[in-house]
Each structure stands twice: as C-alpha cells, then as structure tokens.
C-alpha cells in the first residue's frame, strides 16, 4: 500500500432536467467541489441501464453517482422511481460481485440544489478514498472467471497499446 493520496474517479449520470442543471448551477454559482466526477448527461435517470453502471466500474471508475430529480418531481412523471427500483436491485448484485455498495450511489438534486449535488460528489469522493481503488479485475474476477479475465485483459492491453501508439509515450 502506498500512502500517497488516491484520487478516485466517479462517473456521474446526471438527468437532463434536474441534476444536470443543478451541476450547471453549481458552476454558475462557483461552488467548489472535488473534480472527481466525470459527467454523462442522460435525459432521465430511468435511462441508466444497470449495464451502464457495471460498464463504468469495469472500465476503471471507482464509483458511480446517479443523480436525478426528487421523487414526485421527475420531468417524466416517475422515471426516478424506476431508477430507484433498478438501483436497489443492482446493489444486491454488486454485493455478490464483492463490490462495496457505497460505490454506487443515487442522489436527488433538484435544478436549484447545486449544493446538494456538489456535496454528494465531495462526500462520495471521501467515501471512495476511504474504500480505496476498486480494481475491478482483482475484486470481481479474482478466483473465478480467470479465463475471461485473461481474455479481457488482452482486450485492454490491445486498447492500451493502440492508445500508446497514438500518444507516442506513457
């Protein structure tokens, strides 16, 4: 274990109507929060497939934040409720994978609640710093799925090599 501070990477799925606007407002209001969240805009949290979350974790994110309108205030009536149902089921699956449930969080941030969103990112960053990096291949594929791990890591290596070729170094 190294003692140098570890910066987690969070993928944030922000709903177009509330939380993306809350994030916009956080910027306009110059609220400072951890630069750890990489945003992806979706029209509604109901569009967030569990596969998106798994994909983000598998591709190297340490956590996923799903942010939407408050229950009862969804632009699409109740899309956030659907997202909440999926999230609850997804968490059970994450446990079976050996992934801490704190790594995937859902937050309700209305368009005016820039502070709520900023605080959620800060809080999640602290939580992930305490948990440490996810290391998907060790955490999830260790012990079983080794063949797949080799195959996948080959894919990743190819991708990495391709990227290196482009970049010329690193």
């Amino acid at each position: 274990m190294t003692s140098e501070p570890y910066t987690p990477v969070i993928v944030g799925f922000l709903c177009n109507w509330c939380s993306y606007r809350a994030a916009d407002l956080a910027g306009t209001a110059r609220l400072t929060y951890a630069p750890t969240m990489r945003p992806i805009r979706v029209m509604c949290t109901a569009r967030v497939e569990p596969q998106f979350v798994i994909k983000a974790l598998r591709e190297g994110a340490d956590g996923v934040l799903i942010a939407g309108c408050h229950p009862g205030e969804c632009h699409y009536v109740e899309g956030n409720i659907k997202a909440l149902r999926r999230y609850t089921l997804l968490k059970q699956m994450l446990r079976q994978f050996g992934i801490e449930e704190e790594r995937v969080q859902i937050v309700w941030a209305a368009a005016s609640e820039s502070k709520v969103l900023a605080d959620a990112v800060d809080q999640m960053t602290l939580t992930l710093q305490a948990l440490g990096p996810l290391r998907w291949r060790q955490t999830v594929l260790n012990g079983h799925g080794a063949e797949q791990a080799v195959r996948e890591s080959a894919d990743v290596r190819r991708a990495a090599l391709a990227a290196q070729e482009v970049e010329g170094e690193r």
């Binding site: 993928v11 990489r38 992806i40 994909k55 591709e59 060790q138 080799v150 990495a160 990227a163 690193r170």
Partner: peptide, 16 residues
Amino acid sequence: IEGILWDVRETIPLMA
C-alpha cells in the same frame, strides 16, 4: 463511458 475513463483504463493492472 469508455471515453471519459480513457486514462484510468490504462492504469488498471492488466492481469488479475
């Protein structure tokens, strides 16, 4: 998702 994680994808330990 792949794109925004371009940098951390490379630092993943390649072998389990």
